[in-house]
Design a protein around this nucleic acid. Structure first.
Lengths: 230, 230
DNA sequence: TGCTCGTCAAGAGCGGTGCTCTCGTTTCTT
DNA sequence: AAGAAACGAGAGCACCGCTCTTGACGAGCA
């Protein structure tokens, strides 16, 4: 009975997918600021106002691209990490690091959309937060597994006590892990994205050429200070 | 003889300063994408085309703001760091960290301009690179001083040898410091800006509230792994 | 003192943008 | 078959960066 209905909705879904596809290509070449509804419409042979049948505003189209970006990055990390032996925690961490770096270098504008300067006036809707933590959840799983199997030495001090409320969000991602290890994991997390930000945003231009090696060195360093053996 | 000429140039300099001032205010409220030459002209009571007497394009105005931002950030770091006792290396590092964080939080859009996603189509002119390294030079001085006075323990290994060419730019900033320490300093540097990026770009929203304390904890951690005592 | 020439603000205009509204047409539902 | 919903096209609004021309003003020179 819904065959006819799905026929209509199928062409709608098809056009929606085509719009996001063209928009993603434009995003890759022009950047977020250069994403133009009119240009997308022109490339589709439509008139600009017709796009609004599918996306009520430019921001909604941008949101779709952001969610896609979160999922693509999260999936890249999950896939790389899950391909490693479960008990090679340092290897899983390094694989995840290389995955995010390579994805970011390959899709700099999409990366900028999700980890760069927020686009002015844009407010992330609530349904993006599910996809946004996929990568963080992957790192957390590594730390959680490593701690659970005793691969991380218990730290000497417990970390600042006034930070105990702030560790809440991370405790849900890493149940059973003490706060001191959580903060070391956060440090590794910020070190990872700090490096990738620098590289993608051009701070290493004419400074570091052998970036993959330097990155791996830095991430090994981060893993070592986190306490991941090897 | 040039009194009249300087009179002419003085009003020109005055207007130029007024334009950048208004542009900076617009930048602070609207972000880089919302910086509009027409709006600046409107606020000055001029017609838009008159602005082009002073800045040949929107990008040139943006460049002026970027250079100002580099200098403001660099000056904040230099000032905070130089107020500490010369041999309190960890204190100097922490002071520099807090300076950059506080400046970035106070001027998020200007920070985004210089350390966030590059604005599409914009190419930084050559004369900005002098101002851009002011902050990095300040950190490098701390590490250099600390190494020179023996406050940093010589590291066990020398770092990857295939990275030796890439350390060149940093060796100029930290003469006499071995490569292994250089790469640890780079790691601390990326950790610093990784954190600030996360905080300014909203990744810590609804996650970490007591940000100053958490930041200081992370930067102490970074200093410790760098080898700065205390 | 009068003239020339460079500097300047103003205005009109071009092509572009996001977005809204209306108007026929098509397609699905009942 | 009739009504309702979805759809594409088009015109139009206010804004943008940028260019070109025009006329006024003021400094330097004869």
């Amino acid at each position: 009975m819904t065959a006819s209905r799905t026929a209509r909705e199928r062409v709608r879904a098809e056009l929606t997918r085509e719009i996001t596809g063209i928009a993603r290509r434009q995003l890759a070449t022009e950047g977020a600021g250069g994403l133009s509804l009119r240009a997308v419409a022109r490339e589709m042979g439509m008139v600009s106002s017709a796009i609004y049948r599918y996306f009520p505003s430019r921001d909604h189209l941008l949101t779709a691209l952001i969610v896609d970006g979160y999922n693509a990055l999260g999936e890249a990390v999950e896939q790389a990490e899950s391909a490693c032996p479960r008990h090679d925690f340092a290897g899983r961490w390094l694989a995840a690091c290389h995955a995010v770096r390579e994805w970011a270098v390959a899709h700099p504008h999409e990366y900028a959309l999700i980890y760069g300067s927020p686009v002015p006036g844009y407010q992330a809707p609530q349904d993006t937060i599910a996809a946004r933590v996929r990568d963080v959840a992957a790192y957390s799983r590594i730390v959680c597994d490593a701690w659970g199997s005793g691969a991380i030495a218990p730290p000497a001090n417990e970390g600042p006590e006034e930070l105990q409320p702030d560790a809440g969000s991370f405790r849900e991602l890493m149940p059973g892990v003490p706060d001191a290890v959580i903060w070391q994991a956060v440090a590794a997390w910020t070190a990872l994205y700090g490096w990738v930000n620098f590289e993608v945003f051009g701070q290493f231009n004419n400074v570091i050429e052998n970036r993959r090696t330097a990155f791996e060195h830095a991430m090994r360093h981060a893993a070592a200070t986190l306490g991941l053996a090897q």
